[in-house]
């Protein structure tokens, strides 16, 4: 995202360049919080303070919510992680030592801090939870870039199961295009819902439409080659008129 800072930036820290995030925060934080953030970023950048047993910036990471307000905590934590130049060892430690809020911030920081697939285990950990706040963060730009086709498809399906809007799935159209296996999974899920007399999530049909292949003039290989043409039985699927109102994230 390259637009000018908006109130939404605080909730989309994975999509916002960190410098923009910082500028946006500075314009919205209360003076005391702004001062605290400046000092926290300085601590992180210089790694000053006691290092035993953990660097001082990890405490700043933990207390970001009460210092800056929960609405800004995700963005503040992403900036602290960047200032600390957190490597995989640090990211893994603060994720596993973190509250759900801190884990979410680590997930948001991944596209800014990790180039390769080495952080995929953290995303997979988040995808195993049923906490929709973690799931939403897990399907961000890093997942779009690094998740295997199988894991990514299950992540999309889990969003449908737990009523996480698929708008949260970064790069959805690009990854879904021509994915016949995802189309099959969506179709089977719709059939299962219908067999139980339950409504099919509207989002399912949106994703299913996105799985249609590109015209032949714009070849874009699917993440796994299909041996036969994709079937897109949108019109044949039952119950497409209604939203999945009964989804319960606490069920396994």
């Amino acid at each position: 995202m390259t637009s000018s800072p908006t109130p939404e930036d605080g909730t989309r820290p994975a999509h916002t360049p960190p410098d923009e995030l910082h500028a946006s925060l500075d314009s919205r934080l209360a003076p005391a919080a702004r001062t605290w953030l400046a000092e926290a970023l300085d601590t992180a950048a210089t790694c000053s303070g006691p290092h035993e047993p953990y660097p001082a910036w990890e405490v700043r990471l933990a207390e970001a919510g009460r210092r800056c307000g929960s609405a800004h905590a995700d963005a503040v934590r992403v900036l602290i992680l960047r200032a600390a130049r957190a490597d995989m060892a640090a990211l893994t430690r603060v994720y596993h030592h973190g509250t759900a809020d801190e884990r979410r911030a680590v997930l948001h920081a991944l596209p800014h801090l990790v180039a390769g697939p080495e952080a995929v285990p953290l995303v997979e950990d988040a995808l195993r939870t049923n906490d929709t706040r973690l799931l939403t963060a897990a399907v961000g730009p890093y997942a779009a870039r690094c998740l295997s086709a199988h894991t990514w498809r299950h992540a999309v399906l889990k969003c449908l199961f737990t009523a996480v809007p698929v708008d949260s799935v970064a790069d959805l159209a690009r990854r879904a295009r021509g994915d016949t296996e995802l189309a099959r999974m969506l179709g089977d899920y719709a059939t299962e819902r219908a067999a139980a007399g339950r409504p099919v999530p509207e989002d399912l049909y949106r994703v299913l439409a996105l799985t249609e292949p590109e015209p032949a003039s714009e070849p874009e290989p699917a993440s796994e080659p299909a041996s036969e043409p994709a079937r897109h039985p949108v019109a044949d699927l039952p119950g497409k008129e209604s939203r999945c109102a009964s989804s319960t994230p606490t069920s396994i």
Partner: peptide
């Protein structure tokens, strides 16, 4: 912090 963001299924 008593300001709860309700994380209902409808989100």
């Amino acid at each position: 912090n008593l300001d709860v963001t309700v994380t209902e299924a409808t989100h």
